[in-house]
Structure formats: C-alpha cells, structure tokens
C-alpha cells in the first residue's frame, strides 16, 4: 500500500521537499584537508565539525542542504546527524551572509558597557535591523552571546578577528575600513579555522590573521 492516502494534511506548502541535488563541490585540496583532519581521530565521524567548516568555505560562506549532504557522504554519516550538528552550532551559516558579518557581543559586560548603543548606531547607519543584511550585501549585523574578551568591551567579531573597545563614536570608521577590505570575510574565517586544524600551517598561515 504505497499510495498516499487521502488525508486532510496532504498537499499545500506543508509537504515534504524533494531531496536536494547531489553536488560535489569539494576541491582536491579540500578533500586532502578533510582526510588529514579525519586522520587525527579514531573515528571519521569526529571530523564532522571541521568538515562542515570546510564545506562552509567551499560553498562560499554558508551551508546549503547540498553542502551538508556532501559532508555526510564524505564522512559516511546520515544526513539527519550532520544537519543536526550544523543547526546546533551558531557559527555555521545556514543562510547566506553579507561580505562582512558584524557580530556584536551584547552579553553581560558588553551590555553594561554600552554594546547596545553600538548596535543602534550600526542599525541606524547601515539601515538594517539586527539579523538583517544591507541592500548592497556588504554587511550582515548580528548580536552574539559572550565573545569572552569582556575586558575590552564592547567587542565585535568580524570574520576571524575581534575588534575591541568599540563605542558609537569609533565604530563607524572601523566600518569604513572594512568596507573596502577583502579580509575578515566568513569564507576567510572558515578557511582559518580549517587551517588551524592542520599541522604546520602556522608557517604559511591562513585567513587574514597572521600569527
């Protein structure tokens, strides 16, 4: 009995989606990186988080279903498992982000040190609400939980770097410098995180932050 029984719930936008297209976007280098990282652990599954970082880089800064599917296939995991992981951690982008992702810490210390003023300033100047992306796709603005550099409140993470001691007055010049910088992008962040997993990379470095 495989025919879908007539049921009040059948039909409508509320129906299961067709399976996403299978894609294979991992470059040879990406695959090498994944295998290297997987070799660090007794089980391939452990490479799931790094694998998703690689995917986030290879798929241009955000995780599409196809990206998740590719990670699952390459690590021999079930889709539900990998998607569960991808949706659990806040640093994986399930939606595309702007060229620069401004993540302002508004947790306790920053909150009492005026983080919200910084957020308003940005909201107002960039013309987006928190969570939104500017029309030109240059910036996505987010509030995040504690970045743990409370001594330098207000702190903002952009890509792979923290910017510190921000106030409504000094934040905009930072924005301007970011505007015409190709560093500190989501892809650069993903790239840096991937590289950090791999022995020997400290010499060549990766991302925008050079040790």
């Amino acid at each position: 009995m495989t025919t879908s029984p007539a049921s009040p719930v059948a039909g409508g936008p509320n129906e299961p989606q067709p399976a996403p297209e299978k894609e294979q976007r991992f470059s040879a280098q990406a695959i090498a990186e994944l295998e290297e990282i997987a070799s660090h652990y007794p089980e391939r599954k452990a490479a799931c988080l790094p694998g998703l970082w690689i995917a986030q880089r290879e798929y241009g800064g955000s995780l599409t279903p196809a990206a998740i599917q590719e990670v699952a296939d390459r690590l021999g995991l079930s889709y539900a498992e990998v998607e569960g992981v991808a949706t659990f951690y806040t640093m994986y982008n399930l939606r595309p982000r702007g060229k620069h992702h401004l993540e302002v810490c508004t947790c306790l210390t920053c909150a009492v040190k005026g983080a919200y003023d910084v957020v308003h300033k940005l909201e107002h100047e960039l013309g987006v609400e928190v969570g939104g992306t500017t029309a030109d796709g240059a910036f996505t603005l987010s509030e995040v939980e504690c970045l743990d550099f409370c001594g330098a409140a207000t702190v903002m993470q952009v890509g792979d770097k923290y910017f510190t001691n921000l106030t409504p007055d000094n934040v905009m010049e930072l924005i301007e410098t970011l505007r015409n910088s190709d560093d500190y992008t989501p892809a650069k962040l993903a790239d840096a995180i991937v590289k950090i997993h791999i022995p020997g990379t400290s010499r060549t470095g990766g991302g925008s932050y050079k040790p």
Binding site: A19, P65, Y79, E83
Partner: peptide
C-alpha cells in the same frame, strides 16, 4: 525533530 532538509521520512 526533523528529517534531512525537510525531505520525506
């Protein structure tokens, strides 16, 4: 609880 990318179970 969900299925992968909202595909059928």
């Amino acid at each position: 609880v969900g299925t992968f990318a909202q595909t059928a179970y």
